[in-house]
Amino acid sequence: MHSLRRLFLFIISSLILLALSLKVEELRVYQGAQIAIYALGISSIVLLTGYSGQVSLGNGAFMAIGAYSAALTQIHWHLPLFVTFIVGTFSAALAGAILGGGAARLSGPYLAGATLALAVGLPTLANQFTIFNGETGLDYTAGTPPTWFGESFTLYKWFFWIALINVMLMMFFLRNITSSRYGRTWKALRGNPVAAQLSGIQVGGSKVLAFTISAGVAGLAGTLLGMIGFVGPTGFGLGLSFALVTGAVLSGVTSLAGSMLGAVVLVAIPELASVVAHRLGDTERVTSNLPGLIMSTLLILTVLFTPNGPAEQIRKHKARKQ
């Protein structure tokens, strides 16, 4: 009953968002797609850090793996779009499973360093092998919307619909798995690994599973991000991994719903920055660096004063009042 109600809720909210997209400006539709995709990317970190207690600074790399494998299968084998989504998701998950095997044996700082190395190193491969087409990257497209959708149904709306449906499906899966046996296992692991092991939880296996699913989710997010933009090393560099971590910390890391909040902030920061930069005289140096400045400052302040996220802080505050 509970899960039926949840399914109903997901379908209703998806329909509302899809309908809404027909009413707003093109730019907002595009930003809506960005928010949905970032929310999915942030969820991959929420699952990993918030539930299983592992850290990854390299989920941007898994997004790159997803995007590149989806693009390559589309270019070389002309597979239908939804098959490339599956390819993107599963190839990233496979990479996650391989790395997760090693990651499960590592603790905090080591894992952080290893995943950071991945985030820095992987995009450089794009310039080394001709198949990835260097800085220019690969073209990966969702095609044009079917003609029976009508003239007014633009390309951006098409992108948004595809992205939203994928994100909602994946979110529904995540919501279910985190409230299942696996989700509780991960929470137990995060809380106290020794106690979890004593109560019969396979520590290694559970950690690898979390890493694999997280990588798969990131892979799908990367595939979608490649679809609305392009698949190249600049879009999937260290900056993306940073953005995901920032979004996850801002949204409090423990709640999947919070990932929406983080995603909205990630998309809003450049908007806000361009307004401020305009006031400051629009020099190239300010415009290109202000978003990074705001984002890093927010990240530092959040970690310093509300380490478990603003949402958690408010919840605690309320609990204290009662």
Binding site: G108, P109, A112, M295, S296, I300, N308
Partner: peptide
Amino acid sequence: PVAALAPVIASLGLLG
């Protein structure tokens, strides 16, 4: 969950 990782994340923020 974040508190244990706070120094790592703070140093990352500082890098940015």
